[in-house]
Write a protein that binds this DNA or RNA. Structure first.
Lengths: 160, 160
DNA sequence: AACTTCAAGGTCAAGGTTAATCAATAACGA
DNA sequence: TCGTTATTGATTAACCTTGACCTTGAAGTT
């Protein structure tokens, strides 16, 4: 028997499929857990593990009576290859120059637009600022952090 | 039967819509409560929960005879005002919850879209991850870093 | 003007319901 | 075996609803 987390992940993804065009699904944590015979917090584990922004999902929830968990999908599944492509380009560390070149290239190919690029550049710059002035990190370490951050941001986006 | 709070929230928001661009609506607590068959303090709960500054609203009221409650929808017309509003709400540090509320509100008003929100959340998450697991920062410090990063990311977007 | 009335709205805490978190443990895979 | 991933359950936090009690302020009364 495959592990429960995978089963639940697949089940949730199927909920998206039946709604074909549906970009979000709602569920009740307690019921879902009951239907899989597991403890409710198992659902949180699956969400934290598989339905992250980095994978193109946003999760919102409500407690109390009429509580729910809603999962919004912003991208279609299984663009693993494109994803790999991005990771290869970014690598483990990249210079400011490389970063700019990459973003320009993505923008030219229509994978991101000007506003999206702006957010990304601001975030990376801030991380770099902090790394230098607050934590006194080496240039290499800072560029490694930027690379990781860039990959995460692109992961969720490039899929769509 | 969806929960009462949501129903009342939606009802109040519709009052804004019918007034087409009206910046505020007035209502009487007792009457509104009666029309929904609930206790008057339920109205206060809805106001406290749904019509807060981070969601883009202000509430003022008058007691005594001829009392009333007025709900003002903050104007997002002027870019400078929007920026000021964002900076006020974010401040030096803000909870995960307030962050989500602000982003939701900005998204509802069309100031950011889902993809933009996704990048923002990824960047904040990554900063938080790093702060915790790599640099062992206190929760307050992490939230301060996230606040600064959020303000920077929104600055360019909100002014556009 | 000072006082009283009383019709508004405000506050708070209790009680029930549901989701999130976290740390400990178990299971798995290299 | 060792490190990662999965699972669990106890605790915590968030949400909704209600109702008892408090505060304010306009209008009437003296």
């Amino acid at each position: 028997m495959p592990n429960l987390t995978r089963v639940i992940e697949r089940h949730i993804k199927e909920l998206f499929d039946v709604g074909s065009e549906e970009a979000s699904v709602s569920l009740r944590r307690k019921e879902l857990a009951a239907s899989f015979g597991c403890v409710p917090s198992q659902i949180n584990y699956v969400l934290r593990k598989c339905f992250t922004p980095e994978r193109g999902y946003l999760v919102e929830s409500q407690r109390g009576e009429h509580g729910y968990i809603r999962i919004v999908r912003l991208s279609y599944e299984d663009p693993e290859d494109r994803l790999k492509h991005v990771e290869t380009i970014v690598g483990d560390s990249l210079s400011e120059q490389d970063c700019k070149r990459l973003l320009t290239s993505l923008q030219e190919r229509g994978l991101i637009n000007a506003r999206e690029r702006l957010i990304i550049e601001v975030a990376l710059r801030h991380a770099d600022d902090l790394g230098r002035s607050e934590f006194d990190l080496s240039p290499y370490k800072r560029s490694a952090i930027q690379a990781e951050m860039l990959k995460r941001m692109l992961r969720g986006l490039v899929l769509a």
